[in-house]
Design a protein around this nucleic acid. Structure first.
Length: 253
DNA sequence: CACGTCACCTGCGTGC
DNA sequence: TGCACGCAGGTGACGT
């Protein structure tokens, strides 16, 4: 499917992380979209001779509309797309209520995604590799798993769910884990991610309504409710400013 | 290096 | 009803 970007309209300039909005508009015009892939939480569009990265952050959304559709509230960037005849042109819309999302246009992909940790769904993510990595740091599990340079792609929901599934306390220190625990964590991370993908993600508020993974949460957002495994009340605490949900019986310190 | 705090933003639910 | 407050799926820049 040959699609060429014919225009860029930027309504919230800070959405463009690099280069300047003017340069972005100029450079992206005429670029053909070759491939669309993903690395961690970045959507990666390889264009004719430059790379476009999109990060949705908290409230971003990418959608396709017929060209000329009236703007929606919170549209931040609109890329015009030509389609092969006889198809009508479309626009690729970046809509983002909270304005945290970002786009990068660069010929040096490593400057955007170079520091990221391993992809947990790839073959190299073994229990042994995870254990070795955990032992190179002395950090609390919760913030470490959220650290994209340590492991790529885990957010707050998946971290809490993976820790619960592996029966590990969010405040455990990374260098204290044994191999069997690292193996449980590795399997739990992969299982929780696959489950979330299979269910098209979670719809927990007004931001995104698509998936139904929220109906399968073990702990996230279930403060005070019974743990589905042991019946104890799910607790919530703050760890590094992030709401952290866990079962005090399943996840001993 | 690890950790805490704040900043960036808007919208929604709750409680007074 | 109005309003203050706390919370939200993420990251990055600081300071200690």
């Amino acid at each position: 499917m040959d699609r060429v970007i014919t225009s860029a309209s930027i309504y919230w300039p800070r959405t463009i992380a690099t280069p300047s909005p003017d340069e972005f508009s100029r450079q992206i015009q005429g670029q053909r979209i070759r491939t669309v892939t993903r690395r961690a939480k970045y959507i990666h569009l390889t264009l004719s001779n430059v790379h476009l990265f999109v990060h949705l952050r908290m409230s971003g959304d990418l959608l396709l509309r017929p060209m000329g559709t009236p703007h929606a509230l919170h549209d931040r960037v609109i890329l015009g797309l030509s389609e092969p005849l006889p198809h009508a042109p479309k626009e690729l819309v970046f809509n983002d209520a909270r304005k945290f999302g970002r786009m990068w246009l660069t010929d040096k992909p490593e400057e955007v995604i170079g520091a990221l940790g391993p992809e947990p769904l790839e073959a190299g993510f073994t229990a042994q590799a995870l254990l070795a990595a955990l032992h190179t740091r002395r950090r609390l599990l919760k913030p470490l798993l959220l650290d994209q340079t340590f492991i790529a792609g885990l957010g707050n929901i998946y971290t809490d769910e993976a820790l619960h599934k592996s029966r590990l306390h969010p405040l455990r220190r990374s260098d204290s884990l044994q191999l069997v625990e690292a193996a449980r964590l590795r399997n739990a991370i992969r299982s929780v991610l696959r489950s979330g993908i299979r269910r098209n993600g979670a719809s927990i508020d007004w931001v995104y309504r698509g998936g139904d993974f929220q109906n399968h949460f073990a702990v996230y957002g279930r403060t005070g409710e019974k743990c589905r495994v042991c019946g104890a009340r799910v607790r919530r605490m703050l760890v590094g400013q992030r709401g952290t949900h866990f079962c005090p019986r399943c996840q001993r310190h």
